[in-house]
């Protein structure tokens, strides 16, 4: 149903990419880490609930976790007469009617409520069923939130929604989105204030970047680009951005040392401190592009 956190004053900035492996997790974890040092409002969210990898870089014990539930039907088999109206209605094949009873397959259910509505015998009630977990960690001063969907659950949407609803009021949330342009990416991006699209200057990078641009224009979410591994390919991504009026807010060079530090599960802003400034500037530029950021960059230390 309604999505995202309605918390007043919350700003959601997503870091997204058209394909995996462009450096989305590298950039979002380092950005969150550096931004938190100057701005206590920053929280990191991993919305890639099928493969949450952010915790491999922002390492901390899970402090709190919460089970995510969704509504699924429960059959009162004393009332069920096996009429099969519910299983015929279900568009997702989540119900199977036998002679005088009905089986439920919660993993396939989309929680539409239709079966309870059409049952002529009042034999169906909706009950909560777990589909995943939201986990909260503290990594130094930085609060991180991620979600992980239970294996076997077909729809990841409720877990992404639960992660987004966990954003504390007044935060600036940096969201690591699922790659691609399919429904999990849409669920993460659709109500964000701003999106930073990560790409690389290669033909594959350009192709997948163009698909993401198409999607964000359709969703009417403002966005800008960041180009990773500059020097590896050519200028076609830069040229495309220029001709389409897409701002390039930051770049990272094709530095083999970055790949090596990343391969060990370390933050590059720790392992290669010369890159800190890139992320500090990037955060300031992102904040400038969120119109409701009335507070601007407040160097606050009053909340300690």
């Amino acid at each position: 149903m309604a999505t995202g956190s309605g918390s007043e004053g919350t700003i959601k900035i997503a870091i997204a990419s058209g394909k995996g492996g462009t450096g989305k997790t590298l950039i979002s974890t380092n950005l969150a880490w550096v931004a938190r040092e100057d701005d206590p409002r920053v929280v990191y969210l991993d919305c890639d609930v099928e493969e949450p990898n952010g915790h491999l870089f922002l390492k901390g014990e899970v402090e709190r976790s919460r089970v995510v539930n969704r509504l699924v039907p429960e059959i009162n088999n004393e009332r069920c007469d096996g009429c099969s109206i519910c299983s015929d209605f279900c568009a997702f094949n989540a119900l199977a009617t036998l002679k005088e009873s009905t089986l439920v397959f919660p993993e396939l259910c989309h929680s539409c409520g239709g079966c309870a509505l059409v049952c002529p015998n009042d034999a169906i009630v909706e009950v909560e069923h777990p589909v995943g977990t939201v986990r909260m960690r503290k990594v130094g001063e930085l609060a991180t939130i991620d979600g992980i969907v239970n294996i076997g659950v077909s729809s990841v949407t409720p877990v992404i929604q639960a992660v987004k609803q966990s954003i504390p009021a007044g935060s600036i949330a940096l969201l690591d989105a699922s790659p691609g342009t399919a429904c999990p990416a849409v669920e993460t991006l659709k109500d964000c204030d701003f999106v930073l699209l990560i790409t690389e200057p290669t033909p594959f990078g350009l192709n997948d970047f163009q698909l993401s641009v198409e999607l964000l224009r359709e969703l009417k979410v403002p966005f800008a680009a960041m180009i990773n591994r500059v020097g590896v390919g050519d200028n076609r991504v830069h040229d495309y951005c220029q001709s389409e009026g897409i701002q390039v807010l930051a770049e990272l060079p094709n530095d083999r040392r970055i790949a090596e530090v990343y391969s060990r599960g370390e933050l590059i802003t720790e392992g290669l401190p010369e890159y800190r400034a890139v992320f500090e500037r990037l955060y300031a530029m992102l904040l400038d592009r969120c119109p409701q950021n009335g507070m601007a960059m407040e160097k606050s230390n009053g909340t300690m």
């Binding site: 568009a91 997702f92 989309h110 539409c112 409520g113 059409v118």
Partner: peptide, 18 residues
């Protein structure tokens, strides 16, 4: 729309189709 069919079932005008 996920195509569940609830609106189709409840529409009094039968104005919705899958």
């Amino acid at each position: 729309c996920e195509g569940c069919g609830v609106c189709i079932h409840l529409c009094p005008q039968q104005a919705i189709q899958a």
